[in-house]
Design a protein around this nucleic acid. Structure first.
Lengths: 333, 333
DNA sequence: TTGTATGCGTTATCAT
DNA sequence: ATGATAACGCATACAA
């Protein structure tokens, strides 16, 4: 910057002013600005973001915490975040939580050392208090996907997956005639799991259907492998025909593969309903009937909410944005 | 740091020394170090990485440039990079090039503004000169996947996909008896494309088989959609039976879907051979016969090479690491 | 409108 | 072994 200043025949602070985009015009003479720009070009000068960050306490960096980069559900979300962030001149840090509370805490530690301007978390196990601490300690804006948070400054995007699951189960009964409907879930500590479980339970109650213990499991972990394993466990204690709702598509696809491997026909012997509508859902055979989320829209909303706050367009209380879902009927149920 | 110094009853510079990990022991008295650590704990102090970066010219940040986060081929690679980087205390920036030269240049621009300690590029279109410039301008270490670079300081990991493709084509003929073998490729500007094309051509020559123009296309772009489109184009100008090699699995899966949609049977009417062995390859029906790469190993090697240099264990001339491939025989060919 | 001077939180050089 | 002190490259309060 000093070099630029020398070439342009001005002081370093004038260069700084000329280059700082937010203080548009007014602060520096048009003629001076031009000289500075010429010098910048001539010297091929680039501002150093590290120095700028140190001084301005702003990093032009956002972090995205997802469960796992290899779960396709997150791709359209992350990709949208990356693209929008890029337009705003921001870079994107991506970390995986593997649905683990410990890794989320680890993530917070990282963020404490390398402050970012904004954080997007999907999903998250942190308590309101922990989120609050993260905010006050780092000064970052936070937006999340999910509705189990109530912090005055944390905007969230949410999908009513309790109701979505409810409707899915009702549909399995009313449209497909299933009486025996199972549930492949995850431990209570994995956020969207319990909500979907409640939707299932409510639906079964409203339908007057018994919940068969043999058809219910919380041993999944959102992975394809866990779907295979859990369906195997179920089949070792009870026999088809039945239908089963899997907490996400990866699990559903695993369950489907396992059922096929054990010689059962889908959906005749075992009907399977998933959740998410990831790309693979349409690719597998039989293709997966599932409750579709709209990840691109989710990504857009999250990023919008975040930049609204990062760029100070919004300072008021937490906002909520709901994104729709829909049942996509394919072959597995 | 000043607060810590006050509590520990030492000077700020002593705190710095006590905390700087590379200057192990020796520099500061064990007793003093302990007092500092206690103070750090008591005050819940965290070093500020931005300030550290400004001073040390080291960012503890690496960037990974991939084509597209939604292509599963990259997931195990990226995930490995993230995990290893985390162990080293590094954060990972991820950017998408969409196989576009312009976006790669854009990426370089970003990196120029926000220096990183290391860069992993897969794939890349940049010329040796451009890479060289990136290195001298940013001081970053660079490692790449692919062998079309010759820079004295850029280590690379490579898979002999020319030979892999060659063997794949030979296999289609010798093991499966195909005489008519097509090629779904990409424009010459997309790095691994040409290498695979050469492997195909060499195999066809060695087999004494004619290359039918109607069965060859460079209109793909590594996407699923392009596979559908290109196979449609091929089918509009010639009729099965034939076999076709697709430049990557996504394209192969698209082609497979299109063939099925148009009423053809795989592999009887149209046999399909892919490249990569992404997770979906085993999931689709018919499951995809493909040339498997070892993405996890690729990720490990890339990260190893990179940190060897970042952490100054290696300073010599560029190293090359070759990773194996193998044909995975499933149902599509 | 421009320049001077200061400090953001570290690391590193130099004395002591 | 420790403590002053000077950068690192920039943004900004204040003075001119």
């Amino acid at each position: 910057m000093y070099d630029v200043a020398r070439v342009a025949g001005v002081s370093q602070s004038t260069v700084s002013r000329a280059l700082s985009s937010h203080s548009i015009s007014a602060l520096v003479d048009e003629d001076t600005r031009q000289r500075v720009f010429d010098a910048v070009k001539q010297l091929n000068y680039r501002p150093n973001r590290t120095a700028r960050s140190l001084r301005s306490q702003q990093t032009d960096l956002i972090a995205v915490l997802i469960a796992d980069i290899s779960n396709s559900f997150y791709h359209p979300i992350v990709r949208t975040v990356q693209d929008v962030a890029d337009v705003h001149g921001y870079d994107v840090l991506i970390a995986n939580s593997d649905h683990s509370y410990n890794k989320e805490k680890h993530f917070c530690e990282s963020i404490l050392r390398r402050p970012v301007d904004g954080i997007i978390m999907i999903p998250y196990h942190l308590s309101d208090d922990e989120i609050d601490q993260l905010i006050t300690l780092t000064g970052a804006q936070i937006v999340v996907l999910g509705d189990h948070i109530h912090h005055p400054l944390v905007d969230y995007v949410w999908v009513d997956d309790e109701q979505a699951t409810y409707e899915g189960i009702i549909w399995l009964n009313e449209a497909r005639g299933h009486q025996r409907i199972g549930f492949i879930g995850v431990p209570e500590s994995m956020p969207p799991g319990p909500r979907r479980w409640h939707g299932y339970k409510r639906a079964m109650e409203d339908l007057g259907l018994p919940i068969e213990q043999d058809l219910v499991s919380f041993n999944g972990d959102f992975s394809l492998e866990s779907g295979q394993r859990v369906l195997g466990e179920i089949l070792s204690s009870t026999k088809p025909p039945f239908a089963v709702f899997a907490c996400n598509d990866l699990t559903a696809i695993g369950a489907s593969a396992q059922a096929k491997k054990m010689g059962y026909t889908i959906p005749q012997d075992i009907a399977i309903l998933g959740f998410d509508d990831i790309r693979e859902a349409a690719l597998v055979t039989p293709s997966l009937t599932t409750i579709a989320q709209r990840p691109k829209e989710i990504g857009e909303k999250l990023t919008e909410l975040l930049f609204d706050r990062i760029e100070n367009r919004v300072t008021g209380p937490a906002r909520q944005v709901q994104v729709e879902y829909e049942i996509v009927i394919r072959e597995s149920a």
